[in-house]
Amino acid sequence: MVRILNLLAVVALIGSAIYAYTIKYETIFHAERIVKLKHEIKAEQDQIGTLRAEWAHLTRPERIQALADKFLDLQPVALTQIVGADALPAKAPRVDSIGRKLEALGLTEPTNTPRDGEASAPTTPSIRTR
């Protein structure tokens, strides 16, 4: 009986050693992966910084002004181009096309509801039948 217990203790010891080593190597693997991901994140942040610097360089006002002068035939603003608000055309009145269609169908009359007290009156406008 003692030999069986000794054998079980040795097997348990070997099993726990294997389990400890697997945990150790998994931890090392995950630590290396974390370091690799941190390097990738740093590289992406550097690339974002580079792109932001390029964007700032491309959108400088003096560069855009030089390109506009070179490629666009722009004329300076003259004083005669500036007008007052009273010289602007008036806004056209808003047209309610759905409302006009409902009026044409005769659906603009108010409807009777049950609380009006007239039970014999129709509850909807009359519909023309052909």
Rank of each mutant, 00 (worst) to 15 (best):
M1R: 03
V2W: 00
I4F: 06
L5Q: 12
L7C: 04
V11F: 11
V11P: 00
A12L: 11
I14Q: 08
I14N: 05
S16R: 01
Y19D: 04
A20T: 07
A20Q: 05
Y21H: 04
Y21D: 05
Y21T: 07
Y21G: 02
Y21F: 07
Y25A: 05
I28V: 11
I28W: 03
A31H: 08
E32K: 13
I34D: 13
V35D: 15
V35Q: 14
L37H: 06
K38Q: 15
I41W: 00
K42D: 13
K42G: 01
A43M: 05
Q45G: 00
Q45E: 14
Q45N: 09
D46K: 12
Q47N: 12
G49P: 00
G49C: 00
T50A: 08
T50Y: 07
L51G: 00
A53C: 00
A56S: 10
H57E: 14
H57M: 05
H57S: 14
P61C: 03
E62G: 05
R63Q: 09
I64D: 04
I64P: 02
Q65W: 06
A66Y: 08
A68W: 02
D69R: 15
K70E: 15
D73T: 06
D73G: 07
L74H: 01
Q75A: 14
P76Y: 01
A78E: 14
A78C: 02
L79A: 13
T80K: 14
I82N: 02
I82P: 01
V83L: 08
G84P: 01
D86A: 15
L88E: 10
P89C: 02
P89M: 03
P89D: 03
A90D: 11
A90C: 00
K91D: 12
A92D: 09
A92V: 11
A92K: 12
P93D: 07
P93L: 09
R94I: 15
V95K: 09
V95W: 01
D96W: 01
I98G: 00
K101R: 10
K101F: 11
L102Q: 01
E103Y: 00
A104I: 00
L105D: 03
T108K: 12
T108Q: 09
E109Q: 14
E109W: 02
P110Q: 12
N112A: 09
T113F: 11
P114V: 01
D116T: 05
G117K: 02
E118W: 06
A119S: 08
S120D: 10
S120H: 07
A121L: 08
T123I: 10
T123S: 12
T124L: 13
S126W: 05
S126I: 13
R128L: 10
R128D: 08
R128A: 13
T129K: 10
R130G: 09
